[in-house]
Design a binder for these strands. Sequence first.
RNA 1: GCGGGUGUAGCUCAGUGGUAGAGCGCGACCUUGCCAAGGUCGAUGUCGUGAGUUCGAAUCUCAUCACCCGCUCCA
Length: 529
Amino acid sequence: MSDKEISEKNAELMKTIVSHCKECGFIFQSAEIYGGLNGCWDYGPLGAELKRNLKDYWWRVNVQERDDILGMDGSILTHRSVLEASGHLGGFSDPMCDCLLSNARLRADQIEPQSGTIYWYTGATHAESDWSTEREYGVLIQESQDEKKARKTARLFFSKFLSDKQISPKKLELQGERTEEVTDTIRFNPENGSLLTEARDFNLMFKTQMGASSDENDINAEAYLRPETAQSIFVQFKNVVDTNRVKLPFGIAQIGKSFRNEINPRNFTFRSREFEQMEVEYFCRAEDGSRLTDEWLELRLKFYEAIGVPREKLHVIDIPDGERAHYSSKTYDIEYEFPFGIQELEGVAYRTDHDLKAHKEHSKKPIDYIDQENGGQKLIPHVVEPSAGCDRTILAMICEAYDEETITDEKGKEAVRKVMRFDPKMAPIKVGVFPLLKNKPELVEKAREVQKLLVKHMNVFYDETAAIGRRYRRQDEIGTPFGVTIDFDTLGDSGDELKDTVTLRERDSMEQTRMPISELLPFLLDKIH
RNA sequence: GCGGGUGUAGCUCAGUGGUAGAGCGCGACCUUGCCAAGGUCGAUGUCGUGAGUUCGAAUCUCAUCACCCGCUCCA
């Protein structure tokens, strides 16, 4: 297959997965009945279970099963000063401008100052079709360049507004030409001399006003939706240390939402302006930072394996000097092979002491760690940050789980079986319980008993409609790993040997085994943990 | 942000100016003794939204929203 065919096939696969997610109730578009909200998605009943399972497992592995990591849950609304200290306010909201001709977006502060002659125009006309447009436009011509270039560029610009695209830009009459000498201007694109739009600040963060009667211009009423969860942890670092008798190295973990306004939503839930992060800030001594970063990378790779994202679909990128965030001296990206490309799931970044230092300086509060092991010396710990995208991981799990299998029955008829091969730990529903027939009250009653036995320990789905085969397939489509069928043997119709046993059907192999009801719970609990 | 494409039932789609359709799915009943069985009946649509042209618009025009693809951006 050519690259193009593979990419088309993957695009088809992605469409199918998106449809399947909607059809089964994993993921819906936000505000769909009002036409949808750009890049926002809601988790439906099954998606909510899946996400909960992922977050619970992450929390269990990274917080509850470790005695060196504590959890917290910070507020989403964030104090202005926190973001000043972290550098999110100010430093990163670079003014940008767009080239009026090519639409290229440039950082205003990175434009090389130029000198030369500006050719200004007030509009253009096309006599034959009685078309005209009026707008101010200019082209910068440097000394070595021909003034013809100014007219050519201007015609090209005005031709963008032609309704009849057949008309050649050369046929346009330029209006109101005048010239102006300038030195060191940054209002023109160095690439093509075209006028740029005014420099505009780009809103990297969602901003809101605190207080019902807030004044829009009152800086103290400003609050921001956090652009990353990490800052909540750094800001509360001292409180956690003071109240928990912790010793280096130790971590603080958090799962929560973050918001980034500048994100251009793409690829289903992969890139959204609102997203959930699962991250640990693991504090340590400076000399251990680099080693711990490597150790965390390995731990995280094991985690993905445990939730059903295989190692061979993951790629680790060691981000080179110059491409890392300014605060980091070592960063690994963990990427997954999505149908739409290899894309990042998680970053494991060694953030040094950058963040705590910044908050210490900005808040002027002593947030140092007191090192009792070294005679009460004060120090600012370094930090290693494994930061995973929760929604991205969900999407990876869904893409990985989705499978279509061609099955040939006894009559030689082919059918496609859709299966979500979730790891049983992650599956939204763990087991389906079915009476073989619904019009036999004894079967229904026994099946309800089995349901009751299991329901306090796991998510059980009871279904008595349609033929048994169809019920199995319905569960396959949503990734339920096990099915339990209550039949006449369960009731003792074939003698005591089979009494109180059920058929246990496994999703991936479709194999069926006979199991006593009394063994069902321990068997399933073992599989789903 | 730019360019291209798409939008009709829960899903996949047909319908290109004249009564809103199919397959699958869904519900009820009958039948059914372990892998999408059969029968009968049934429900489901602001044709993405708004405006315009027209005697008449799902269909043509414009705007807008959303999604997909390619660029751009992603501290």
